[in-house]
Design a protein around this nucleic acid. Structure first.
Lengths: 241, 241
DNA sequence: GTTTAGTGTTCCGCATAGCGGAATAATAAG
DNA sequence: CTTATTATTCCGCTATGCGGAACACTAAAC
């Protein structure tokens, strides 16, 4: 039990409902109350109250006749509202799409979410096939380019590994972090961290492709500098320093 | 207070937390506790408990130094999980992208959410500019093509307007619903309803473009029949009847 | 510099919302 | 027909959460 959970302000009933929703994973089509009880550790009657309330507000839908649940439209609506609340995104849309078209690689925005860098927005080159990653995909913080860029830019990071130190130096000297097969042996990528407001989770813009499509020279001489410059232009446009 | 809210199974604390998140609208960058109190009608101390709990679980982020909140990465993560739970989407990706490329119009999947048809997934033609609509946008049920297609396919609809009756007949005879500027005077569109499991909100696939790019002949002779056939092929691939 | 207004946060007495074990109901498998 | 599993409901009990008031801080107005 964390500090927040012990705090008298903590609303445990709200937390339980959120945990029930978070029990759903991307590969799940539907889950019954019993499976939700197993995954969350809650008694079935507690789960039944949570699912009843969530379903009445559109956060879950109960399928018939199986009586299993799936995440409902209110969840998706909130997700889109959350993304729409990222005020810099409209300004990023065109320049990142142009970058994807010019370089022929996948461009994406990722956001830290727990132990992962989660893809929040993707821009695909319109005239080339691109990496299979899409929005919602989670990349490990320690191995992926965006994860490492976020960690390298973090001034409070204390448990610094050799890799993190090298990434921080690379970020300071070149303005981006590069990964050759760091997360997936067949994928090369680069990333530039992007911080918005204090108190919020950090972002990183990334470019990535299969190694066969994105060799060392193209990555280091073309794509990574272009990404760094595009993100810097975006910062200036937004009045960020 | 609805029937569900009076039910003893209803967890009002969970509902309050969800209402706080739903107080955020797509144009909001951040909201303070007082504004959340105003929007939800809850006392400030109740809102403070909800925001404290939501922030501790990543559903809200508190910005510094303004102390205002924005929706956090856990909301976006759940939204992507919800979309990933739509098991038919992977199979729709390629055929709908191809349809967008072939016809040069925006193709999208929408889902009923309250009084709106909410765009859940968009496919843009890669070699043409397209309609400005994107994921999360909400179209009115009574005026938009997808809204009308969903209503026309609804066997339980009782308050049938003249438009709904005409749409139902069009759907039955042609397999799609067409809208000339029904939602926006400069936009033409067609839609085909798509039902998945019983108990869940209905979907509709739609094609739309500016009227200057999508005239009557192209819509009726090319795009609408193609959409209907593509959705029908998708149903068969999924084993739906 | 003082006063006023607005915001965010915390406190605490109170009572009801929510808990969870047990019972009930339904369906599927053996 | 019996057993196993799931879903749902009940209800006595108490801990969770409520909200008005107080407190703290900052900014604007005078």
């Amino acid at each position: 039990m964390s500090d927040a959970e012990r705090d008298r302000r903590f609303a445990s009933t709200l937390a339980k409902g959120l945990q029930v929703m978070q029990a759903f994973k991307p590969g799940d089509v539907s889950l019954g109350n019993r499976e939700l009880a197993r995954r969350t550790g809650m008694p079935p009657s507690t789960v039944a109250r949570m699912t009843f309330t969530l379903a009445s507000m559109g956060f879950l839908e109960q399928l018939h006749p199986s009586e299993a649940y799936r995440l409902g439209p209110s969840v998706m609506a909130l997700g889109y509202t959350a993304r729409a609340g990222l005020s810099f995104l409209p300004m990023a849309e065109n320049v990142m799409q142009q970058l994807a078209d010019d370089t022929g690689v996948l461009v994406a925005l990722s956001m830290r979410h727990g132990d992962a860098a989660m893809l929040t927005r993707c821009w695909r080159p319109r005239n080339a096939s691109s990496l299979w990653l899409s929005e919602g995909h989670r990349l490990p913080m320690e191995q992926s380019a965006p994860g490492r860029a976020i960690l390298a830019a973090d001034p409070t990071l204390v448990a610094e590994t050799e890799q993190a130190r090298a990434d921080r130096e690379q970020l300071e000297s070149r303005g981006y972090v590069i990964s050759y097969g760091g997360w997936n042996s067949g994928v090369n990528a680069c990333a530039v961290p992007f911080q918005t407001a204090l108190g919020t989770q950090p972002f990183a813009f990334l470019c990535g492709a299969n190694a066969s499509d994105l060799n060392t020279e193209k990555l280091e001489r073309v794509v990574a500098p272009r990404l760094r410059d595009t993100v810097q232009t975006l910062r200036h446009s937004l009045g960020y320093m």
